[in-house]
Nucleic acid binder design. Structure first.
Lengths: 250, 250
DNA sequence: TTAATAGTGTCTTTCAGACAATATTAT
DNA sequence: ATAATATTGTCTGAAAGACACTATTAA
């Protein structure tokens, strides 16, 4: 193709060694009150038998589509079908340090996904296994995936503050307590139940009532909860701020 | 190289056509109370004679280094030398739609830079010209650079709220009024002078006093201003919130 | 003298957070 | 009955925003 030749010929080819572009996905969910991340076990070198974020090469598709495809392959679900239809997916950041992959220059576009509780994944593609792992135990990952995961977690924590993202972690209809459990799992800190309840209902467009209630109260008693679904707000105003840790400010 | 061969052989090569990785930089500054972006005029096709964001191929270097290098080439300044030492540079997002470059698949990692007022750039590299352009007039750019610029502006507006980023737009010593002019230029809205003044001084670590004042008052009168330098806070707490536009929330 | 602007004071409203109170339900 | 939990009420202090006021300086 001539246009491509002209393009490449106008630069010193040795100055631009081949580069591979991949996507990696930090997929988060809350299971039993604990924040989990989707990991795959690597079948071959490098980092054989180590856990890693799901990901793979970008094909003739948009970056967003590549991330969605990789995620669907690992979870065994097709996009738009089942719970993945409600999935939230956004670009996180791009990691391209020379040497981050020992084989060649690989630039990886990382994505962040939030899903309601999903079934255990099946192994897909070249991965030996796949599992939802509590984020506390997701350490020692392959490549620079520890850093990518850390960045994803920080993004998730921040986005809970000023967007209605928490609703992406719960089913279509949910109680305020379920929403509160999401904040507790992601922030690692239980918000005050009474204040949280009033706050959520007072933010315009965060949630809207279904008029229904749960079929029964909690396991150890208590009244039935009202059910809500996600509202139409894209930003929470005023925001639900995390308690400020003084040391994180400086 | 055998490791690379194994790597590439394990995939269908026709499924992964060659990809180029570039960086593009949205460099912002405030000149005369107006927000400007650094643009270059393209010398050849595609988009010949159109304006574009400065950028280029990533070499054997980190993505951050590539962005800094491209910026230095366009401004004619070397990193760490002169005002570029105080430059703030952060990754913005990555753009990789097939077809965004008509010649071949190009994945571009966009960066956002904030600089104090800099001299007019010299043309560098293959660019026919380079200039600081008011963001209002930076439309009809090459490739998908209109969208990248829009994303960069939104990021800049948001970051002024909760980080001390505004200090990256002013010289090392500055007055509260100069800082206010940055917010006015980026937000397109003049904060209330009295409230802004009190607010900036009340946020811990935002600015610290130098004990000095300006040599003289304003051009049309008024007292001398006290001078401040940037403080040690990395986050503003509480934040300086933009007036919420109701329509942007939904 | 006049106009402009830095910096401060004051008041109102909103909101976060602590804590209490009430109502409902499983065991 | 008892314990747990949803939901609501009340109070305090922080903070935003409107507005007024004083002091200082260039022209």
């Amino acid at each position: 193709m001539s246009a491509e030749r002209d393009f490449l010929d106008s630069y010193d080819p040795t100055a631009f060694p081949p580069v591979a572009v991949t996507v990696d996905v930090v997929a988060l969910t809350v299971r039993g009150g604990v924040l989990h991340v989707l990991l795959v076990e690597r079948g071959g070198p490098p980092f054989a038998d180590r856990w890693a974020l799901p990901g793979g090469f970008v094909r003739e598709e948009t970056l967003d589509a590549a991330a969605m495809r990789e995620l669907a392959e690992e979870t065994g679900l097709r996009p738009g079908e089942g719970p993945l239809g409600a999935l939230h997916l956004e670009q996180l950041a791009t990691y391209g340090d020379p040497g981050r992959d020992p084989r060649m220059r690989v630039v990886s576009v990382a994505y962040l996904a939030f899903a309601p509780s999903l079934p255990d994944p099946r192994a897909g593609g070249d991965a030996a296994g796949a599992a939802w792992v509590p984020v506390d135990r997701a350490v020692g990952l392959a490549f620079d995936h520890d850093a990518i995961l850390a960045d994803g977690l920080e993004r998730a924590r921040a986005k809970l503050e000023y967007t209605p993202l928490a609703t992406a972690f719960v089913p279509g209809e949910f109680t305020i307590a379920e929403l509160r459990a999401v904040y507790a799992a992601v922030w690692g800190e239980e918000p005050h139940a009474g204040n949280f309840h009033r706050k959520v209902l007072s933010v315009p467009g965060f949630v809207e009532s279904t008029g229904e209630t749960t079929g029964r109260g909690g396991e150890r008693g208590g009244p039935r909860s009202r059910l809500y679904r996600s509202g139409d707000a894209r930003l929470l105003h005023p925001a639900l701020l995390r308690p400020a840790r003084e040391d994180s400010v400086r």
